[in-house]
Design a protein around this nucleic acid. Structure first.
Lengths: 336, 336
DNA sequence: CTGTTAGCGCTTTCAA
DNA sequence: TTGAAAGCGCTAACAG
């Protein structure tokens, strides 16, 4: 590979000093438009790309942001990653991946390691790390900016979230409209804010339909397929059976479908099932799953844009909200 | 954050020159063990971590490797990523993600962009990019080292793969042992080497069992759920029906299950179905899917270790092989 | 609005 | 086996 053009080559070609080139490349003010154009042309002609390490060393920022995650769902993380990369591409930032443990000790250890090695300019936290108090305290202490996806507890700083209670409520409304009254709910993992919000939406959905809340119809799960299987067995041992089961995510809903099939129930005639998130599995199950679409990629993109903006110009408030969509498929229908 | 220790701090603490510290940190020879120990202790005491940008600028390597991917399966990519990160962590390398298009023009454009911005020291290619001729030619021209996961066509350089034909053959053996003779196959996407290997294994499995190859039982798919649905409909319109369908991946097998359920077939009594890859969906479908486990994380780890080794000491040959596992679950059984 | 100078923290080259 | 000096390519602080 022919050695790349350097800033001084561009400066020479444009007949200016390297500092002026630097100004243009960094979109700093105080450059005459005419000069700017000349520099831009020279840069393009030489196919000049600033050397990240040199910028980083001289400017003491790394142009890295890190995504700290601990989430069993590959689809969720890949969605977020795609969005983060979309936003990074626009601003010449790079993404560092940082899988982390949940236990405070090793979580903090891996974050310290990350800070030492990658020296990111900012972090993005995914649930449930988004609400890990030790982590938030550490980052605050380090004075490193971070952005949070779907945080349970509000704080100053950058965040993005769906209106999860409302989405869950709409799911219940959908079931009620089909004629269901005996609607069960499988709660998600307690560490995730989403579990509480979805339960909350479930309850308010029932309340709005004038259906009494029945604790026997609410079972604790953990967002995993296996936890859905266990919860489904418990719910399908009830007498009378619920006519619908609303699982707090798609994986648990898959567990419900599994048990329902094992027991020979016809879906959705004998039992309606719905999930949450709209992961690819929702389309691939039989019957295909009614669920709430969570726009993970968009969330990743928005929260990253907001973080990068924040890095330039910190403002205390920037909580973004994204829209969800109810995806009605084959797993919900009128009760027999 | 208190400013981090620099190499000169370590040098001062250990009573040596910064060059000696540099030698120790880079595991270069020509340092007395005693001196080395002293430096190591000082480094540890000061919690010294070399500044990546400074190393990169001075040493003209980036300590980045890039993963170039274009693969619809989140699980596959996340598996590989996890393995790559495992290997990177050991050697202080960083991973840059580079989603790419399949069309040669934009593929090359995004790779050029990657090279300009991240200046990776090496690349890792996933299928089907692993076999994109334009890409391989470009990288060879640039003289940038790359490693290939599951390459279709052998070349010099680093690679890792499973024995896919043998795995597919074993799957057929499993079906034959259950008593199946009329075994259909859904072929994967033509751009992937895996499609050919799995078809090859299917054919040799039949041959070894003395079963005549019947072209009517082989249908083209594309590795997607939808393509599996279409192929399944075609196969299940046959008369007589096949007693088993071997899909070249799990997503297509999910499509087969879907159609089988729609048609009221009992599984596995009326039809055995099996897939390939052992993605999470294999456990979550009903009935759970017999499949071949592909160790994506291990593949990512091995190919990265090999690439990093190659960067230090290029050798023409380093093709690694990983083991697969037949996962027998509920979707295969004796034909009625 | 533009240019000059001095580093950023490390590796390299060469000398000791 | 060790060290001194000279950059790597860029930005920051200041001067014009």
């Amino acid at each position: 590979m022919a050695s790349r053009a350097r800033i001084e080559d561009v400066a020479a070609a444009a007949g200016v000093s390297i500092k002026t080139v630097s100004r243009v490349m960094n979109r700093e003010p105080n450059v005459r438009p005419e000069t700017r154009d000349r520099v831009m042309q020279a840069a393009e002609a030489l196919r000049y790309t600033p050397h990240v390490s040199a910028r980083s060393l001289a400017g003491s920022r790394s142009f890295n942001i890190a995504l700290v995650y601990n989430n069993p769902s590959d689809n969720y993380i890949m969605g977020v990653i795609s969005g983060v990369l979309d936003a990074c591409a626009c601003e010449q930032y790079h993404l560092m991946l940082s899988p982390a443990a949940l236990e405070p000790e090793s979580l903090l250890a891996s974050v310290d390691e990350l800070m030492a090695r990658s020296r990111p300019d900012g972090l993005i936290l995914t649930p449930p790390l988004t609400d890990a108090p030790e982590l938030l305290d550490r980052l605050t202490g380090l004075e490193i900016p971070f952005a949070r996806i779907s945080p349970k507890q509000a704080r100053d700083g950058v965040s993005v979230a769906m209106d999860e209670p409302r989405a869950a409520e709409q799911m219940v409304e959908h079931l009620v409209a089909l004629g269901h009254r005996r609607i069960a709910h499988i709660v998600g993992h307690p560490a995730h804010g989403a579990s509480g919000w979805r339960l909350e939406g479930y309850r308010s959905g029932l309340a709005r339909a004038g259906i009494r809340f029945d604790p026997a119809l609410v079972v604790q799960g953990a967002f995993s397929f296996e936890s859905g299987v266990i919860a489904a067995k418990q719910l399908l041992d009830l007498d009378p059976l619920p006519t619908a089961i609303f699982a707090a995510n798609d994986d648990m809903a898959a567990g419900v479908l599994y048990v329902a099939h094992e027991r020979g129930l016809r879906l959705p005639q004998d039992l309606s099932v719905c999930g949450f998130d709209d992961t690819p599995i929702a389309r691939q199950l039989f019957p295909s799953l009614t669920t709430i679409h969570q726009p993970t990629r968009e969330m990743g993109r928005i929260v990253t844009q907001a973080l990068l903006t924040y890095l330039r110009d910190p403002r205390p408030e920037s909580a973004y909200r994204v829209a969800h969509t109810l995806m009605v498929r084959q797993s919900t229908g009128r009760p027999a």
